[in-house]
Protein backbone atom coordinates (compact mmCIF):
# COMPACT_ATOMS: atom_id res chain seq x y z
CA UNK A 1 0.00 0.00 0.00
CA UNK A 2 1.31 3.39 -1.05
CA UNK A 3 1.64 6.40 1.26
CA UNK A 4 -1.61 8.30 0.85
CA UNK A 5 -1.02 10.87 3.57
CA UNK A 6 -0.82 14.53 2.67
CA UNK A 7 0.27 17.66 4.49
CA UNK A 8 -1.72 20.70 3.40
CA UNK A 9 0.51 23.37 4.86
CA UNK A 10 0.15 22.07 8.39
CA UNK A 11 -3.11 20.18 8.00
CA UNK A 12 -2.18 16.51 7.94
CA UNK A 13 -4.66 14.06 6.41
CA UNK A 14 -4.40 10.27 6.24
CA UNK A 15 -5.43 10.43 2.59
CA UNK A 16 -6.23 13.20 0.12
CA UNK A 17 -9.98 12.49 -0.07
CA UNK A 18 -12.19 14.99 1.75
CA UNK A 19 -15.91 15.65 1.56
CA UNK A 20 -17.19 18.99 0.34
CA UNK A 21 -19.16 21.24 2.64
CA UNK A 22 -22.93 20.94 2.36
CA UNK A 23 -22.86 17.50 0.79
CA UNK A 24 -21.98 15.29 3.72
CA UNK A 25 -23.88 16.88 6.60
CA UNK A 26 -21.81 16.45 9.75
CA UNK A 27 -20.54 13.02 8.70
CA UNK A 28 -23.09 11.18 10.84
CA UNK A 29 -25.56 11.14 7.95
CA UNK A 30 -23.22 8.74 6.12
CA UNK A 31 -21.96 6.49 8.89
CA UNK A 32 -24.36 3.67 7.94
CA UNK A 33 -22.54 3.42 4.61
CA UNK A 34 -18.89 4.22 5.19
CA UNK A 35 -16.30 3.92 7.90
CA UNK A 36 -15.74 7.65 8.39
CA UNK A 37 -12.21 7.02 9.65
CA UNK A 38 -11.25 5.96 6.12
CA UNK A 39 -11.97 9.42 4.77
CA UNK A 40 -9.11 11.94 4.76
CA UNK A 41 -11.22 14.81 6.03
CA UNK A 42 -14.82 15.87 6.44
CA UNK A 43 -15.79 19.47 5.84
CA UNK A 44 -19.04 20.05 7.64
CA UNK A 45 -21.94 22.22 6.59
CA UNK A 46 -21.34 25.98 6.23
CA UNK A 47 -21.61 27.56 9.66
CA UNK A 48 -22.48 31.19 10.36
CA UNK A 49 -22.42 33.29 13.52
CA UNK A 50 -26.21 33.47 13.76
CA UNK A 51 -28.77 30.78 12.83
CA UNK A 52 -29.97 30.91 9.23
CA UNK A 53 -33.26 29.53 7.91
CA UNK A 54 -31.92 29.32 4.37
CA UNK A 55 -33.88 29.98 1.21
CA UNK A 56 -37.46 28.99 0.49
CA UNK A 57 -38.31 25.69 -1.16
CA UNK A 58 -37.75 24.67 -4.01
CA UNK A 59 -34.01 24.64 -3.59
CA UNK A 60 -32.91 22.04 -6.11
CA UNK A 61 -33.08 21.42 -9.83
CA UNK A 62 -31.59 18.47 -11.65
CA UNK A 63 -29.62 19.46 -14.76
CA UNK A 64 -27.77 17.39 -17.38
CA UNK A 65 -25.02 15.54 -15.46
CA UNK A 66 -25.45 17.80 -12.50
CA UNK A 67 -27.74 19.83 -10.31
CA UNK A 68 -28.41 23.32 -9.04
CA UNK A 69 -28.93 24.10 -5.39
CA UNK A 70 -30.09 27.18 -3.58
CA UNK A 71 -29.96 26.08 0.05
CA UNK A 72 -28.72 29.45 1.26
CA UNK A 73 -26.48 28.38 4.16
CA UNK A 74 -29.23 26.94 6.34
CA UNK A 75 -27.61 26.19 9.69
CA UNK A 76 -28.28 26.68 13.38
CA UNK A 77 -25.36 28.98 14.00
CA UNK A 78 -21.94 28.51 15.55
CA UNK A 79 -23.14 28.51 19.16
CA UNK A 80 -25.52 25.63 18.47
CA UNK A 81 -22.67 23.90 16.65
CA UNK A 82 -20.36 24.24 19.63
CA UNK A 83 -22.95 23.09 22.18
CA UNK A 84 -24.79 20.35 20.31
CA UNK A 85 -22.96 19.16 17.22
CA UNK A 86 -19.29 19.38 18.15
CA UNK A 87 -19.67 16.94 21.09
CA UNK A 88 -21.15 14.37 18.71
CA UNK A 89 -18.50 14.65 16.00
CA UNK A 90 -15.31 15.50 17.85
CA UNK A 91 -14.25 11.89 18.24
CA UNK A 92 -14.74 10.87 14.63
CA UNK A 93 -11.31 9.61 13.63
CA UNK A 94 -10.67 11.94 10.72
CA UNK A 95 -9.99 15.65 10.23
CA UNK A 96 -13.31 17.37 11.02
CA UNK A 97 -13.10 20.77 9.36
CA UNK A 98 -15.69 23.52 9.70
CA UNK A 99 -16.74 25.61 6.73
CA UNK A 100 -17.20 29.17 8.00
CA UNK A 101 -19.50 31.58 6.20
CA UNK A 102 -20.78 35.03 6.95
CA UNK A 103 -22.23 38.22 5.62
CA UNK A 104 -19.91 40.72 7.32
CA UNK A 105 -16.21 40.64 8.13
CA UNK A 106 -17.11 40.84 11.83
CA UNK A 107 -19.31 37.72 11.54
CA UNK A 108 -16.53 35.73 9.89
CA UNK A 109 -14.02 36.84 12.49
CA UNK A 110 -16.26 36.03 15.45
CA UNK A 111 -17.19 32.61 14.08
CA UNK A 112 -13.56 31.75 13.32
CA UNK A 113 -12.50 32.92 16.77
CA UNK A 114 -15.06 30.63 18.44
CA UNK A 115 -14.04 27.63 16.35
CA UNK A 116 -10.35 28.33 16.99
CA UNK A 117 -11.01 27.21 20.58
CA UNK A 118 -12.35 23.79 19.57
CA UNK A 119 -9.53 21.34 20.14
CA UNK A 120 -10.73 18.65 17.73
CA UNK A 121 -11.32 20.97 14.77
CA UNK A 122 -7.89 21.11 13.10
CA UNK A 123 -8.75 23.66 10.41
CA UNK A 124 -11.45 25.86 8.95
CA UNK A 125 -12.47 26.44 5.40
CA UNK A 126 -13.45 30.05 4.84
CA UNK A 127 -16.40 30.24 2.48
CA UNK A 128 -15.98 33.48 0.54
CA UNK A 129 -17.90 32.04 -2.35
CA UNK A 130 -21.46 30.98 -1.57
CA UNK A 131 -23.57 32.13 -4.52
CA UNK A 132 -26.92 31.57 -2.82
CA UNK A 133 -27.29 34.35 -0.30
CA UNK A 134 -27.18 38.06 -0.88
CA UNK A 135 -24.23 38.61 1.42
CA UNK A 136 -23.21 34.98 1.65
CA UNK A 137 -19.58 35.55 1.17
CA UNK A 138 -19.52 35.70 -2.59
CA UNK A 139 -19.42 39.48 -2.25
CA UNK A 140 -16.00 38.94 -0.66
CA UNK A 141 -14.92 36.26 -3.04
CA UNK A 142 -15.47 38.09 -6.31
CA UNK A 143 -13.01 40.92 -5.80
CA UNK A 144 -9.39 40.57 -4.77
CA UNK A 145 -9.85 43.43 -2.32
CA UNK A 146 -12.87 41.79 -0.64
CA UNK A 147 -11.10 38.46 -0.44
CA UNK A 148 -7.97 40.01 1.02
CA UNK A 149 -10.02 41.96 3.57
CA UNK A 150 -11.92 39.02 5.02
CA UNK A 151 -9.00 36.56 4.93
CA UNK A 152 -6.59 38.92 6.66
CA UNK A 153 -9.16 39.76 9.34
CA UNK A 154 -9.79 36.06 10.05
CA UNK A 155 -6.07 35.32 9.91
CA UNK A 156 -5.55 37.61 12.91
CA UNK A 157 -7.79 35.50 15.16
CA UNK A 158 -7.49 32.01 13.67
CA UNK A 159 -4.27 30.19 14.57
CA UNK A 160 -4.70 26.84 12.85
CA UNK A 161 -4.60 25.93 9.14
CA UNK A 162 -6.85 28.26 7.20
CA UNK A 163 -8.31 27.08 3.89
CA UNK A 164 -10.03 29.65 1.68
CA UNK A 165 -12.73 28.35 -0.66
CA UNK A 166 -12.81 30.25 -3.91
CA UNK A 167 -15.64 31.17 -6.23
CA UNK A 168 -15.42 30.29 -9.91
CA UNK A 169 -17.82 33.13 -10.72
CA UNK A 170 -15.04 35.60 -11.42
CA UNK A 171 -13.08 36.84 -14.42
CA UNK A 172 -9.76 35.52 -13.16
CA UNK A 173 -9.72 33.04 -10.28
CA UNK A 174 -5.92 33.22 -9.97
CA UNK A 175 -6.26 36.82 -8.85
CA UNK A 176 -8.54 35.71 -5.97
CA UNK A 177 -6.17 32.89 -5.08
CA UNK A 178 -3.21 35.25 -4.94
CA UNK A 179 -5.18 37.68 -2.79
CA UNK A 180 -6.08 34.88 -0.36
CA UNK A 181 -2.47 33.73 -0.25
CA UNK A 182 -1.17 37.26 0.34
CA UNK A 183 -3.68 37.70 3.17
CA UNK A 184 -2.39 34.63 4.98
CA UNK A 185 -4.38 31.65 3.70
CA UNK A 186 -2.57 28.36 4.26
CA UNK A 187 -4.30 26.75 1.29
CA UNK A 188 -7.10 27.39 -1.17
CA UNK A 189 -9.94 25.09 -2.19
CA UNK A 190 -11.76 25.41 -5.46
CA UNK A 191 -14.23 25.49 -7.02
CA UNK A 192 -17.42 26.40 -5.21
CA UNK A 193 -20.54 26.05 -7.35
CA UNK A 194 -21.00 27.82 -10.65
CA UNK A 195 -23.89 30.25 -10.79
CA UNK A 196 -26.63 28.76 -12.95
CA UNK A 197 -30.34 28.75 -13.63
CA UNK A 198 -33.14 26.36 -14.57
CA UNK A 199 -36.54 27.14 -16.06
CA UNK A 200 -39.79 25.19 -16.21
CA UNK A 201 -40.97 26.16 -19.69
CA UNK A 202 -44.46 24.69 -19.25
CA UNK A 203 -45.10 26.86 -16.22
CA UNK A 204 -42.96 29.73 -17.54
CA UNK A 205 -41.34 29.90 -14.12
CA UNK A 206 -37.88 29.44 -12.65
CA UNK A 207 -37.48 26.10 -10.86
CA UNK A 208 -35.57 27.53 -7.89
CA UNK A 209 -37.22 29.90 -5.43
CA UNK A 210 -34.18 32.14 -5.79
CA UNK A 211 -34.24 31.96 -9.63
CA UNK A 212 -30.48 31.29 -9.79
CA UNK A 213 -28.47 28.71 -7.88
CA UNK A 214 -25.15 26.95 -7.60
CA UNK A 215 -24.34 24.28 -10.15
CA UNK A 216 -22.41 21.16 -9.19
CA UNK A 217 -21.93 17.61 -10.36
CA UNK A 218 -20.12 15.91 -13.22
CA UNK A 219 -20.96 18.70 -15.67
CA UNK A 220 -18.71 21.24 -13.92
CA UNK A 221 -15.59 19.07 -13.85
CA UNK A 222 -13.77 20.43 -16.91
CA UNK A 223 -14.18 24.00 -15.64
CA UNK A 224 -13.01 23.04 -12.16
CA UNK A 225 -10.03 21.12 -13.50
CA UNK A 226 -8.94 24.08 -15.62
CA UNK A 227 -9.20 26.45 -12.67
CA UNK A 228 -7.28 24.13 -10.34
CA UNK A 229 -4.52 23.87 -12.93
CA UNK A 230 -4.35 27.68 -13.32
CA UNK A 231 -4.39 28.36 -9.58
CA UNK A 232 -1.79 25.69 -8.81
CA UNK A 233 0.60 27.51 -11.12
CA UNK A 234 -0.26 30.92 -9.66
CA UNK A 235 0.19 30.34 -5.92
CA UNK A 236 2.72 28.65 -3.66
CA UNK A 237 0.20 27.41 -1.07
CA UNK A 238 -1.36 23.98 -1.59
CA UNK A 239 -4.52 23.70 -3.64
CA UNK A 240 -7.50 21.51 -2.74
CA UNK A 241 -9.41 20.58 -5.88
CA UNK A 242 -13.12 19.99 -6.18
CA UNK A 243 -15.92 20.29 -8.66
CA UNK A 244 -17.62 17.38 -10.36
CA UNK A 245 -15.43 14.60 -8.96
CA UNK A 246 -17.53 11.47 -9.40
CA UNK A 247 -14.93 8.71 -9.14
CA UNK A 248 -11.30 7.85 -8.52
CA UNK A 249 -10.21 8.65 -12.04
CA UNK A 250 -11.61 12.17 -11.73
CA UNK A 251 -9.80 12.60 -8.41
CA UNK A 252 -6.46 11.55 -9.92
CA UNK A 253 -6.97 14.11 -12.70
CA UNK A 254 -7.29 16.90 -10.11
CA UNK A 255 -4.12 15.75 -8.36
CA UNK A 256 -2.24 15.67 -11.66
CA UNK A 257 -3.51 19.18 -12.42
CA UNK A 258 -1.84 20.40 -9.23
CA UNK A 259 -4.15 19.65 -6.31
CA UNK A 260 -2.62 18.35 -3.07
CA UNK A 261 -5.98 16.96 -1.94
CA UNK A 262 -9.48 16.77 -3.34
CA UNK A 263 -13.06 17.11 -2.14
CA UNK A 264 -16.00 14.99 -3.17
CA UNK A 265 -19.36 16.71 -3.10
CA UNK A 266 -22.43 15.96 -5.15
CA UNK A 267 -21.20 12.43 -5.93
CA UNK A 268 -22.03 11.50 -2.33
CA UNK A 269 -25.72 11.86 -3.20
CA UNK A 270 -25.53 9.20 -5.88
CA UNK A 271 -23.11 6.83 -4.14
CA UNK A 272 -22.77 7.34 -0.39
CA UNK A 273 -19.69 5.10 -0.40
CA UNK A 274 -17.87 6.97 -3.18
CA UNK A 275 -15.24 8.55 -0.89
CA UNK A 276 -13.70 5.27 0.18
CA UNK A 277 -13.84 3.96 -3.38
CA UNK A 278 -11.91 7.03 -4.52
CA UNK A 279 -9.23 6.50 -1.87
CA UNK A 280 -8.90 2.87 -2.96
CA UNK A 281 -8.66 3.88 -6.61
CA UNK A 282 -5.87 6.38 -5.90
CA UNK A 283 -3.95 3.68 -4.07
CA UNK A 284 -4.41 1.30 -6.99
CA UNK A 285 -3.44 3.98 -9.52
CA UNK A 286 -0.24 4.72 -7.64
CA UNK A 287 0.63 1.04 -7.63
CA UNK A 288 0.05 0.74 -11.36
CA UNK A 289 2.12 3.83 -12.13
CA UNK A 290 4.90 3.30 -9.63
CA UNK A 291 4.23 6.20 -7.28
CA UNK A 292 5.28 5.65 -3.67
CA UNK A 293 3.62 8.71 -2.18
CA UNK A 294 0.51 10.55 -3.26
CA UNK A 295 2.50 13.78 -2.92
CA UNK A 296 4.34 12.79 -6.11
CA UNK A 297 1.07 12.90 -8.00
CA UNK A 298 0.46 16.57 -7.30
CA UNK A 299 1.15 18.49 -10.48
CA UNK A 300 2.60 15.43 -12.22
CA UNK A 301 0.80 16.37 -15.42
CA UNK A 302 3.14 16.20 -18.39
CA UNK A 303 2.57 18.85 -21.02
Amino acid sequence: MADLSVNINGLVLKNPVMTASGTFGYGKEYEDFVDLSQIGGIIVKGTTLHPREGNAYPRMAETPMGMLNAVGLQNKGVHYFVDHIYPQIKDIDTAMIVNVAGSTVEDYVETARIINDLEKIPAIELNVSCPNVKHGGMAFGVTAKGCEEVVSAVRKVYRKPLIVKLSPNVTDITEMARAAEAAGADSVSLINTLLGMAIDAEKRRPILSTVTGGMSGAAVKPVALRMVWQVAKAVKVPVIGLGGIMNGKDAVEFLLAGATAIQVGTANFIDPTVTVKIAAYIDDYMGRHGFKSVKELTGALEI
Binding site: G25, G54, Y57, V71
Partner: peptide
Amino acid sequence: NRMACGLGACLCCV
Protein backbone atom coordinates in the same frame (compact mmCIF):
# COMPACT_ATOMS: atom_id res chain seq x y z
CA ASN B 1 -40.64 17.45 -1.88
CA ARG B 2 -37.94 17.46 -4.52
CA MET B 3 -34.91 15.68 -3.07
CA ALA B 4 -31.27 15.14 -3.85
CA CYS B 5 -29.48 13.03 -1.22
CA GLY B 6 -32.36 11.43 0.71
CA LEU B 7 -30.14 11.33 3.80
CA GLY B 8 -30.61 14.74 5.39
CA ALA B 9 -27.29 16.05 4.13
CA CYS B 10 -28.03 18.41 1.25
CA LEU B 11 -30.94 20.30 2.82
CA CYS B 12 -32.76 20.62 -0.52
CA CYS B 13 -36.13 18.97 0.26
CA VAL B 14 -37.08 21.20 3.17
